[in-house]
Amino acid sequence: MNAAQEISPVNSSPRRPVDSLDTPVRVSPEGPAPVVAAEPPKLTVKNLDAWYGSNHALHGVNLTVPPRSVMAAIGPSGCGKSTFLRCLNRMHELIPGARAEGTLLIDGQDLLSRDVDPVTLRRRVGMVFQRPNPFPTMSIRDNVAAGLKLNGIPGNHHEIVERTLRQSALWDEVKDRLDASALSLSGGQQQRLCIARALAVQPEVLLMDEPASALDPIATAKIEDLIHELKERYTIVIVTHNMQQAGRVSDQTAFFYMGDLIEVGPTEKIFTNPSEKRTEDYVTGKFG
C-alpha cells in the first residue's frame, strides 16, 4: 500500500525553500558516535531485541538520540523500523505474542524494565500514528485535552489546549470551533490535532509512525514544517517510508534492513556517503 506514496509528487516538489540536504547537521560526518559531546543523549537504546511469537523481528539494536533532534528510521517494508518505534513506548505489547528485551534509557532511566508500568513510559514518550485517529465522540477541544482528562490530571486545560494547538500550528484554523466534532476536520488537520493531543500530556519524546503517509502533499508539507518547529522543544523519532521526507526533516537517519540496524548517522552522511553497501543501495533506489 505504500508503493503509491513513494512516487507521490511530494518528493520532487520544490515547494520547500530549504533543501533538506542543506540542513545543518550538528555532528561531523566522520564522528563515530552521532552524539554531541556536550549533551548526554535523551534516548539510549541498548541491545534491543524484539520478537513476534518465534519471529525475531529486531536484532540487538543500539543507538542514541540527542535531545531536541529528529531521528528518522528508514528501510524497506518489514525491516523492523516500525517495530523499533513501537518498542520505544512499549506499544508492541498490544500485539499478541510480541515481546522485547533490552534497555531503553530516557535521561539515564530504564523504562523497558518489567517493573515500570507502560503507562508511566507512555506519558513521557508520546506517539503519533500512521493514520489520524482522533476520538470520534469528542470535540476538538476534548480531543486535545483527552490525555489530561482521561489521566485525571488537574489544571487549566483551556490554556493547555490553546498552547498545544498553537504549537501544532492548528490554532488559527480551529479556534472558532473548538467544540465541533474532531471528525469535521480534514485529514491533515486531524493529524495535527493528534499531534496536539500527544503534546498536551507534555511528553519528552515524540514518536511518529509515518505521520504523513495518509495525507496529501500540502498536508504533508505542513506536518514536516511542524516537525521542524517541534524539535526546538522535543526529541523526535520518526519512521518514514519516504526517503526524501527523511532527508528533509531529520538530523540523523537510522537504516534498518531485515531486523538489523545497518547503519545510523547524520542524515547527510547516510544519504551522500553511507559506510554500508546496503544503505547505499537502498538510498539510491536499487531496492526497497
Binding site: 513510559l121 506519558r123 485517529n133 493528534c194 493531543r197
Partner: peptide, 8 residues
C-alpha cells in the same frame, strides 16, 4: 492505540 499512547 491513541489512548494507550497518551499514557491512559
Amino acid at each position: 492505540e491513541a489512548s494507550l499512547a497518551l499514557g491512559v
